[in-house]
């Protein structure tokens, strides 16, 4: 009986519309505990070397501040567990299916993904 209930519960969770996010610190939680914080791996522009930042051209600033890749498919995003531990982290998420392919900590390089979106094994 217990097993049947467990299977039913898993099945119900699978059909559930709500996205589940794996927080690296707290584990799997519902999406409404989290807030999206923009695309990941965006580098602040510099004018090269020690030159002051105000020398960066308007075009570069506009590109940095406003232009988005806005990927249809697997995007790298920053999220924060705002109603939880409050920590920021990165994830690779499919913007069509909403499937989250991998979660990784801020500052870590973006894992290489296969075309299907699975993280590549480093031994491959």
């Amino acid at each position: 009986m217990k097993w049947v209930l467990l299977v039913l519960r898993i099945k119900r969770r699978k059909g559930c519309e709500m996205m589940q996010v794996l927080c690296p610190w707290c584990g799997v939680r519902d999406e409404d505990e989290f807030t999206y914080g923009g695309p990941a791996h965006i580098t602040r522009p510099t004018s090269g070397g020690d030159a002051p930042q105000q020398d960066v051209s308007d075009e570069k600033w506009a590109s940095y501040l406003y232009e988005k890749d806005n990927v249809k498919g697997i995007a790298r995003e920053r999220w924060v567990h705002v109603h939880g531990c409050g920590q920021w982290f990165n994830l690779a998420r499919d913007t069509v299916s909403h499937k989250i392919h991998c979660v990784y900590k801020m500052g870590e390089p973006c894992p290489v993904l296969t075309p299907e979106g699975d993280p590549k094994n480093r031994n491959d």
Binding site: E17, Y36, N70, K72, T95
Partner: peptide, 13 residues
Amino acid sequence: DNYPSYGQRGNVA
């Protein structure tokens, strides 16, 4: 829905 999506559906929250 406050995150990027091309899904044409929408979340429950």
